[in-house]
Simulated scan of single mutants.
Amino acid sequence: MNRLQFTVPPLPHYMLCGLSSYGPGGRHVSRRNVGVFDLLVVREGCLYVGEEEQTYEIGEGCALILRPDSHHYGTKGCDVHTSYYWLHFQTTGSWTLTDDELPRSGPEPYDEKRMQALWSYATHTFQIQVPQFVRLLHPGKVDELIDQLIQLNHSFYSGSAKWNQQALFQEVLRQLSASMAPAESAPAAACADQAAAYMRKHYRESITAQELGERLNFHPVYIARCMQRYYGCAPMEYLMHHRIEQAKLLLLQTDHTIARIAEEVGFNQAAYFTSCFTKAEGISPRKYRQRFSYG
């Protein structure tokens, strides 16, 4: 497996992303030496892309990173309607393409020069790896992260939005790296992904743990265990988080009343929505809107 290996710090940094699509026959553009890394994540359909002599079929749930110093081109048109995320990023540090795996974590041998550097407060660099091409272990999580990045494009000139974007992008890289893990964990990851996808699609509706289990044909306890492992929270916590994120988007992009926004993201009562939002964000919905409207 080809891996992109980065020496950090500095960490690779996010630049811009979006969602694009091709109809049947649409072909990826031909470009050479674009100067930025281009991450492609396919949501539906399949992209046929080449980089130098290597060709790829990027199907649903797969990701490919195109290098900044290479020739990229479409090898053929799409067979069906295909939608995909694109994300540009760059690094000011060193990087290389390798098929060597980094050593497993464990005790590092004593290195006198390294220890002297640590004690003198010099910068200590290390390597991180992400696959150039991979079937994502957790595609729903990556979709969610990139969706949040796209939402923050609307607040591009806000310092806090830029900071959030960089944090979200680092999590995208972590998800790519985790996708190189052995496949034994795939069933649990698939369960968590299906649960998250269902809640993102139906977040405006009333959802219970029991209903989620019936819809996915998994026991609610198993779903909760999988969600905790891969998302770090229980299903209902995930649902609450997604509703709050959608509310933030409506607060920034519309002039809807707080009551209407509460209803549109699945809350029956505006007061309960305000309480949940304030607990999650440390600020009321009204003040959140004011901060980004006048910040």
Rank of each mutant, 00 (worst) to 15 (best):
A197G: 07
L173Q: 00
S155T: 14
S105E: 08
A183H: 12
N153V: 08
H202V: 05
R215S: 07
A181T: 05
F218S: 07
N153R: 13
E184P: 08
Q165R: 08
S185M: 09
H241W: 13
I150Q: 14
L145W: 01
A190Q: 04
G159R: 13
R174V: 01
I244L: 02
R243N: 07
H124G: 06
Q166E: 05
I150G: 10
Y198L: 08
K162A: 13
T208L: 07
Y231Q: 15
Q116S: 08
V172K: 05
K141V: 03
C226K: 09
F218C: 12
Q148E: 14
R104Q: 07
N217Y: 10
A189W: 02
E112S: 02
H219D: 07
A192S: 12
A190D: 01
Y110M: 02
A192P: 07
F218W: 09
A234Q: 15
Y157A: 15
M199V: 12
K248F: 09
V172Y: 04
P131Q: 02
N217P: 06
R243V: 08
M115D: 14
R104A: 10
M240Q: 11
P109Y: 03
R229S: 15
K248C: 11
D143W: 02
I128Q: 01
F133K: 06
W119A: 15
E237A: 02
E237P: 02
M227S: 14
T208M: 10
S206I: 11
M236V: 04
K162E: 10
I146H: 12
R114D: 11
E112G: 01
H124L: 08
V142K: 01
Y203H: 10
A167N: 09
A178F: 01
M236E: 03
F169Q: 00
W119Y: 11
E205N: 14
S158R: 04
L216P: 00
E108V: 14
E214W: 15
S105L: 09
A195S: 08
P103A: 15
A181H: 05
A161F: 01
V130W: 01
P103V: 05
A122L: 10
E108F: 11
R114W: 07
Q228R: 12
M236N: 05
E211F: 05
Q194D: 05
G159M: 07
A178K: 02
P109K: 12
Q228C: 15
Q129C: 10
E245F: 08
H241T: 15
K162R: 13
M199Q: 11
H219K: 12
Q175H: 07
E205D: 12
G106Q: 06
A183G: 12
L216K: 06
L149F: 02
M199H: 06
N164K: 15
Q165N: 02
Q228P: 10
P187R: 06
R243A: 10
K201A: 11
A197L: 07
P103I: 03
G140S: 14
E184M: 09
E205G: 13
R135F: 02
L145C: 05
F218H: 13
A196W: 05
I223T: 06
R215V: 06
Y198I: 03
M180Q: 05
R200E: 12
S120R: 15
H219A: 11
L102I: 00
Y198D: 05
R174A: 10
C191N: 04
